[in-house]
């Protein structure tokens, strides 16, 4: 399983212009916020377990809160991961091909990432609206499920933008790559 490695010396440091830096900042902010939401879920779970053990009084609806928050938090992780070249991919077959070809293929890959993000953002939003329309709620607390679904959209939308940006970025590297340096998009 691939994972970002703290302090990995060989990790490439992509160079970005103002737009890229803005997208990176947005993605990073969403990621950290989502990660902190998980820290919050840990704290809630501990309170609930202790309450259940000691007083037969868990946090009411702890399971459904965890599910709703986790969905929104997880969706916010994707954009930064893609801009950071964090995708899991097979690079075996293209290891000996020129960097220009690889950048070309990665541009296509990023474009597909953009389609994926846009598609899911749109459909998750449509799903959220119909859930809201029919007033579906969580079982115990009665929270509208649609809001949790809608909260996935910003992360997925940012993934679409990041994919689009990275597609252009890779295309520009095709030219820059031949001169041996990264081009600022």
């Amino acid at each position: 399983m691939k994972e970002p490695i703290a302090g990995d010396p060989a990790a490439p440091l992509p160079v970005h212009g103002p737009l890229g830096r803005l997208l990176l900042t947005c993605g990073k902010t969403l990621s950290v916020l989502g990660g902190l939401l998980f820290v919050g879920l840990v704290i809630m779970s501990i309170i609930s377990i202790v309450g259940r053990k000691l007083a037969s009084a868990p946090v009411p609806g702890d399971m459904e809160v965890l599910q709703m928050v986790a969905a929104a938090a997880s969706a916010s992780f994707f954009a930064y991961c893609h801009m950071n070249h964090g995708d899991v991919k097979v690079d075996f077959f293209t290891a000996n091909v020129s960097p220009r070809v690889n950048h070309g293929l990665d541009a296509v890959g990023s474009l597909l990432v953009a389609c994926f993000g846009a598609l899911l953002c749109w459909r998750a939003g449509a799903g959220a609206l119909s859930t809201l329309e029919f007033g579906e709620t969580s079982a115990i607390l009665g929270w509208p499920v649609g809001w949790a679904q809608l909260a996935m959209c910003p992360g997925l939308g940012l993934l679409a933008l990041s994919g689009l940006y990275m597609a252009v970025w890779h295309l520009r590297q095709i030219h820059g790559g031949s001169r041996g340096k990264e081009v600022i998009a």
Binding site: P4, S31, G34, G35, F38, Y80, C81
Partner: peptide
């Protein structure tokens, strides 16, 4: 830690 978790989870 939050960022590292986010990245690994995203993948």
């Amino acid at each position: 830690s939050a960022l590292g978790t986010a990245q690994a989870t995203a993948m």
